[in-house]
């Protein structure tokens, strides 16, 4: 099969042409911060704006999730300009994230914590103001809880619910800062449309969708 070879952070890599740069990097153990990327989704949503990298010959940083790998491409994931944008995006997210790691079920298994470590950034932003919305928590589902205040609007749950379950319990509503991941007409998740498959919880990168005490499938099995 035809392949292309490229360089990411000095590491020589071969990949299938047409693959997205983010995917190639992650598969080769080069971490690039990302939240909205979904392995099987053909079109990237490119909404979290955290996977900025620099490509030799290009003036401005680009999002790795939207770029097809090409022969001879030289990528720097640690460029000054790119990292500045990633940090800014991360700070914006954290400034509107109800930060409470100690009591958060995702503590230790949270993408935001991982990104903070990667960027050597604090979880608390100093330069931006804290803008929280204090939305009500939905714990109507028997298996899991939805806390919109921890949601980063990555859309993974929306996609997995529509794609795998064809049920489409979740969707986005409202515009601008008011945008929220919710259900049709804001009905409780626990109402009859949800099949309790809890795949949405599995894909959630933060503690927004989390299993209730003792409801995590692995713990049940074990």
């Amino acid at each position: 099969m035809k392949t292309v070879s490229l360089t990411i952070d000095g590491k020589k890599i071969t990949a299938r042409p047409g693959e997205k740069l983010l995917r190639v990097a992650l598969e080769n153990s080069i971490y690039i911060p990302n939240l909205c990327a979904i392995r099987d989704k053909p079109e990237p949503s490119a909404s979290c704006r955290l996977c900025f990298v620099e490509i030799e010959g290009g003036e401005e940083p680009v999002t790795a999730c939207t770029i097809d790998v090409t022969e001879g491409m030289v990528v720097n994931t640690r460029g000054e300009k790119a990292l500045a944008l990633v940090r800014a995006g991360f700070e914006l997210l954290m400034a509107s994230h109800a930060l409470d790691c100690a009591h958060c079920p995702a503590n230790g298994n949270c993408e935001l914590q991982k990104i903070a470590r990667h960027l050597k950034a604090s979880l608390k932003t100093k330069r931006l103001r804290l803008l929280l919305r204090e939305l009500p928590i939905d714990d109507s589902n028997p298996l899991f809880t939805y806390d919109p205040n921890k949601c980063v609007l990555c859309g993974r749950c929306v996609w997995v619910c529509r794609q795998n379950i064809k049920s489409g319990v979740f969707g986005f509503a409202h515009r601008g800062f008011e945008r929220v991941m919710t259900t049709f007409a804001d009905e409780p998740i626990g109402a009859d449309r949800c099949l309790d498959c809890s795949q949405c919880v599995e894909v959630c990168p933060t503690g927004a969708l989390s299993f209730k005490e003792g409801k995590r499938p692995s713990t049940e099995d074990g």
Binding site: A88, L92, L93, L131, F172
Partner: peptide, 12 residues
């Protein structure tokens, strides 16, 4: 409200 910078940056 889809992307981080526009949704949160304009609000900030």
């Amino acid at each position: 409200g889809k992307c981080t910078f526009c949704r949160l940056g304009t609000k900030q």
